[in-house]
């Protein structure tokens, strides 16, 4: 499976990751090797089979849409690098 540099950078961008120029060769090689190996799924006799999305029976689990308040606001915000007035602070998004 050949992966181009452009394709790798496009995927990295979708995943919100930057790759350094010197890392790219390595990532490309790893990705190709792993995809070549993973390609064996295409030899499996599975055309007639349905997909499985979870380990057990796939069923919806419903519950009432009730608000449960998490009391410890301070602990929640304690891990944020930047906050203000009990809120997470981010760079300006509207110009």
């Amino acid at each position: 499976m050949k992966v181009s540099k452009e394709e790798l950078l496009h995927i990295a961008n979708l995943a919100q990751l930057n790759l350094k120029e010197e890392e790219i060769g390595n990532y490309l090689q790893n990705l190709e090797e792993i995809l070549n190996f993973a390609n064996i799924v295409n030899n499996a006799p599975v055309d007639e089979l349905d997909i499985t999305i979870g380990a057990n029976e796939a069923k919806n689990v419903f519950r009432k849409d009730e608000v449960k308040v998490f009391e410890d606001n301070e602990a929640l915000l304690a891990n944020a690098v930047s906050k203000e007035l009990n809120m997470f602070k981010i760079p300006k998004v509207i110009q």
Partner: peptide
């Protein structure tokens, strides 16, 4: 990602059934 979903992910989900 689009273009590879069927070849890899969907196939893998079927292999999971197998």
């Amino acid at each position: 990602s689009s273009g590879y979903y069927d070849a890899y992910y969907k196939k893998a989900q079927k292999v999971r059934t197998m």
